[in-house]
Design a binder for these strands. Structure first.
Length: 533
RNA sequence: GGGCCUGUAGCUCAGUCAGGUAGAGCGUCGGACUUUUAAUCCGAUGGUCGCGGGUUCGAACCCCGUCAGGCCCGCCA
């Protein structure tokens, strides 16, 4: 069973109606690590729906969280906003300075980072109900539960201290009021009678905060269970940082009971890291955003990345060769017929599980829920080759038609080619996939050739010199040059690849050579032949 | 110090919850396809299941210990 189906099954034991929730703080650029959170939730919701449950998927945007520090992409002016809520401060402009003008129009820091992420989600087929946390506080959604938290502050303090093993400050209070400047930092609570919390701030000012109007927020460890309560969350995936013993889920599951609700079914997931660069971190500049990723990778393949790995497995992502392998794996999986595979009675239990997991992963990878992926009959590798050798899209389609792979390009294939071209032009495209013809003989590659293959070089140079310079003639000339010497065509290809590309094998040479200068190619071949003799 | 996760074929992993002959994909190697040679098809290769004990008729799986890697125990996502 696919991991999402396992989770759905667990939910089905608890009831028929479910709310799967995810949440992210929009403190900076979103990256594909965040995508795991939201895709994990989306996939559980799909699986639950599949299992006949009534399920809603929500995404809480934590705009009530304060700005923690002046990040590297922010100008020094942001110093004044430290401690202020992300949904109540201006967004950075292109230079990292506060964009006051758009702020007046209602464009906040939170919006700035959220908007592109939501567009990415749209493309990737995730359409959650969005809940703005700051707005939820201000409209009183937290009111009732925040009241219980404040009324029963001692019990909550005891739970946090016992479970997390840390000691809370003497003046700790389960409500963080906004101070006279609008910051959550450095405020001391001096008294409480619902709905007012009295405080003394770091500027020496005294004031009151109205809980029911969201003039402040619950500290994170209470904020989370309170959300579970008022939203009615029954399942929530979260990063392994929250899952640790003494972490916020451990305290949350107990606090939520004090608040009069049940804890949601948890699912901890591992991080996605960039290969060789460790965990993703905006400050280290080694992030890749969902938007950037989608410019290179089709959404269903990005979904497969998350779908095929069980949540507790760390994912290593990179935009080079593993992407090619992932994409080709997608094609292979799409080409299989799972129904007939599963009909085979002779499958061992183990094999059956493997087939089921593959089928499940593909079901979860589909951008449109319930849609069955169609194999495109064109691998990523092949498309990469065509995109590099054909300047126009039409030429690519012609080539594929000619090969009998397609009749008309589908929309998804057209999208894929567009992304492929973007990928090729980007810094991410792996050298290994780049097609290049040598300028000078590659000695070590030539040394690998056997005597037969070497002997073809002269004949090959001559054949190409004499042939008409188009793909068809070149294509005929390469094997013919070997046949002339009573050798198998293989010898001709081997010789050609070693001489022209410095490799043992490669993509079809003829169409590539046809785009190049005949004289140069012949010269290179002659130089290689000479080198050998 | 306390806790969680991970360790299985060259690589990526499944199989661990419900113990019953070690599984896939990729890679590699070989063959076929006499010109779609990054393709396709067929075949083969490949593992002291991190290590040591224990329970059991039987352990990758359960229990105890141990080693290695990652993470958490900060008003923190």
């Amino acid at each position: 069973m696919h991991w999402a189906d396992v989770a759905a099954k667990a939910l089905s034991h608890k009831g028929d109606k479910h709310i799967v929730s995810t949440g992210i703080t929009p403190s900076g650029e979103f990256h594909i690590g965040h995508l795991r959170e939201i895709l994990t939730g989306d996939m559980i919701a799909r699986a639950a729906r599949n299992a006949g449950l009534d399920v809603e998927f929500v995404f809480v945007v934590d705009t009530a969280d304060p700005l923690r520090k002046v990040y590297e992409f922010l100008g020094p002016e942001y110093e004044q906003f430290i401690g202020h809520q992300l949904g109540s401060i201006p967004a950075p402009d292109a230079d990292g300075n506060p964009d006051w003008k758009r702020f007046e129009e209602g464009w906040t820091y939170g919006d700035h980072f959220l908007k592109p992420f939501l567009e990415a989600l749209e493309q990737i087929g995730v359409r959650p109900r969005i809940i703005d946390n700051l707005e939820s506080y201000q409209s009183g959604k937290f009111d009732a539960l925040a009241k219980i938290a404040c009324d029963r502050a001692d019990e909550i303090r005891e739970a946090i201290e016992r479970i997390s093993g840390r000691e809370l400050a003497e003046d700790w209070f389960p409500w963080s009021p906004l101070d006279s400047k609008g910051s959550l930092d450095g405020v001391k609570v001096t008294g409480y009678e619902y709905p007012l919390v009295h405080w003394h701030d770091s500027h020496g000012v005294d004031g009151t905060s109205d809980i029911s109007k969201g003039e402040g927020k619950l500290p994170w460890r209470i904020d989370w269970p309170a959300k579970w309560g008022w939203i009615g969350v029954t399942c929530e995936p979260f990063g392994k940082d929250h899952g640790a013993a003494g972490g916020s889920y451990a305290t949350g599951r107990e606090i939520v009971q004090i608040l009069g609700h049940e804890a949601p079914h948890p699912l901890t997931y591992e991080w996605i890291s960039l290969k060789g660069q460790g965990a993703m971190s905006s400050s280290a500049g080694n992030t890749i955003g969902p938007i950037e990723a989608l410019e290179l990778v089709p959404p269903e393949i990005l979904r497969l990345l998350v779908a095929k790995s069980k949540p507790n497995k760390a994912i290593e992502f990179d935009t080079g060769m593993s992407l090619v392998n992932l994409a080709d794996e997608y094609e292979r999986l799409a080409a299989r017929d799972y129904t007939s595979e599963l009909a085979n009675e002779e499958l061992s239990r183990r094999q059956r599980v493997q087939v089921e997991d593959a089928a499940g992963a593909m079901r979860m990878a589909a951008v449109e829920e319930g849609k069955v992926a169609q194999a495109t009959a064109v691998t990523f590798r092949h498309l990469a080759l065509l995109a590099q050798t054909k300047t126009t899209d039409d030429a690519v389609w012609d080539s594929l038609r000619h090969a009998g792979a397609i009749e008309q390009p589908t929309q998804s294939l057209i999208d894929r080619l567009t992304r492929m071209r973007a990928w090729i032009d980007s810094k991410h495209f792996p050298l290994e996939m780049k097609i290049s013809i040598l300028d000078a003989p590659n000695h070590s590659a030539l040394a690998e050739l056997n005597d037969d293959e070497r002997s073809v070089l002269n004949s090959l140079a001559k054949a190409l010199e004499d042939c008409e310079w188009n793909a068809t003639s070149i294509g005929a000339a390469i094997p013919q040059s070997a046949k002339n010497m009573e050798l198998s065509p293989k010898a001709g290809y081997r010789a050609a690849y070693a001489a022209l590309m410095g490799k043992e094998r490669g993509p079809r040479l003829a169409p590539i050579l046809a785009e190049m200068d005949q004289k140069k190619i012949v010269e290179l071949l002659n130089a290689c032949a000479e080198h050998i003799n």
